[in-house]
Write a protein that binds this DNA or RNA. Structure first.
Lengths: 177, 177
DNA sequence: CGCGCAACGGTCCGGACCGGATGATTCCGT
DNA sequence: ACGGAATCATCCGGTCCGGACCGTTGCGCG
C-alpha cells in the first residue's frame, strides 16, 4: 500500500470495474472503446497494467481462474469503493485539455496564405461533421442500454464537435490574416 | 535519418522554431506556456528531447555557444521547412481528444444522487467560467503582439469553455437521473 | 559597489506510458 | 470437425513524464 497518487487512469479503471464487475481487462477495453474512449483515448496496455497496481493498493481484488483460459477477473474492495466515491465527490483539479491536431496546425498557419488556411478549415469542418453523424447514430443505438450520465458525456462530446464545426466554418469563410 | 514518424510534438517544435528562430528550448517553453499550452500541455522535458531528435533527422540545426552559458540555439533547415509545410497542408489525421476530468466523473456518476451530480456540475461551471475570464484577459493583453492565427486558436479555446460552461449549467439545473 | 534573488537554460533519472506484434484459447457457423 | 473470428493476455523497446537539481546571468536595492 505504497500511497502512490492515483491518476485519471486509476479512476477510470475503478469506475469501469464498479460498473462491470466481475470483469476482465478485455471487458473494460470493450466498454471504453464505445464510450469515454471516443473523447479520451486510453491505451489497452494501461487497462492491463493499472488494475494490477490497484490490486497492490488494495483497491481491487483479482480472481484468476485456474483452469482453461485463466482469465483474470477483477472486483472492487470496500477501500476501492470508498476511493472512487471520494474522487467523485471532489471537484476536478486538473484543467481539461483540447488535444486537437487542427488547433495545432492553425496555431502555426501564419505565413500560409488564406487559401491554405481555408483548406485546413474545410477539412476540419468535415472531420467534425463526420463525427457528429457517427456519434448521433451511436447515441440512437445505445439510447436504451446506456445510463443517463453516460449519455450526458456523449452529449457534451457532440456539443464540442458542433462548436468546433461552426468555428472552422467561420474560419473557412473568413481566414485570419 | 532513421525515418521515424513524426508526432504532434515534433511539429510543435518545428513550428515553434520557425516562429522564434534562433531560439533555445527555454524560449519554446515560454511561448508554449502562454499559448497553445493552455489547451494541450507539452511537458518541458520534451522541448529538450525532441529538438535533439529533429537535429538527428536533419530537420533542425543546433548551434551551441562555446562561451558562457553554452546555450543551445536551434534553427530550421530547408528539409525542416519542407516537412512543416507538408504537414500544414495535410488534413489532420488523428481525431481530437477532450481530456477533461469532469467528463470522466460524469461518466461514472450514475449511482450518485442528483445532488452530488449537481455539485459536480456547479464546480465545473466555475472552472470553465474562471478560464473564460482568464483567457479573455489574456487575449486583451496579447491582442496586438500575437498573430491572427494564434488569436484564432485562443478563440476556439474560449468557445470550448463557453460550450462546456453552458452544458454543465444545464446539468446542474436538471441532473441526469 | 556588491549582495542576493529572480529569471535563465539545462540535465538527469526512475517510473509510467505507448501501441504494435504476437500467441493461445474458446466460440460459432456451416 | 474445421476454420475463422472473438476473447484474453503478455511482452518489449522506445517514448514520455515531471520533479529535483544545478550552474549562470541580470538586475534591483541598500
Amino acid at each position: 500500500m505504497a500511497e502512490r497518487s492515483l491518476t485519471p487512469t486509476s479512476y477510470l479503471v475503478l469506475g469501469l470495474v464498479r460498473t462491470l464487475q466481475p470483469c476482465t481487462s478485455y471487458d473494460m477495453k470493450q466498454l471504453v472503446n464505445v464510450s469515454i474512449g471516443m473523447f479520451w483515448s486510453f491505451p489497452h496496455s494501461q487497462l492491463y497494467a493499472e488494475p494490477a497496481r490497484l490490486v497492490d493498493d488494495g483497491l481491487l481484488v483479482e480472481d484468476q481462474e485456474d483452469t482453461g483460459r485463466r482469465r483474470r477477473l477483477f472486483r472492487m474492495t470496500e477501500a476501492g469503493e470508498a476511493e472512487l466515491d471520494t474522487w467523485l465527490a471532489m471537484p476536478a483539479q486538473e484543467i481539461g485539455e483540447l488535444r486537437d491536431e487542427g488547433l495545432l496546425k492553425l496555431f502555426f498557419s501564419h505565413q500560409q496564405d488564406a487559401a491554405a488556411i481555408a483548406d485546413l478549415a474545410r477539412a476540419q469542418v468535415k472531420v467534425h461533421e463526420d463525427r457528429i453523424a457517427f456519434l448521433t447514430k451511436l447515441r440512437a443505438e445505445v439510447r436504451d442500454q446506456a445510463l443517463p450520465t453516460q449519455l450526458a458525456t456523449l452529449e457534451l462530446g457532440l456539443r464540442w464537435d458542433r462548436t468546433a464545426a461552426d468555428f472552422w466554418a467561420e474560419v473557412a469563410d473568413d481566414p485570419p490574416a
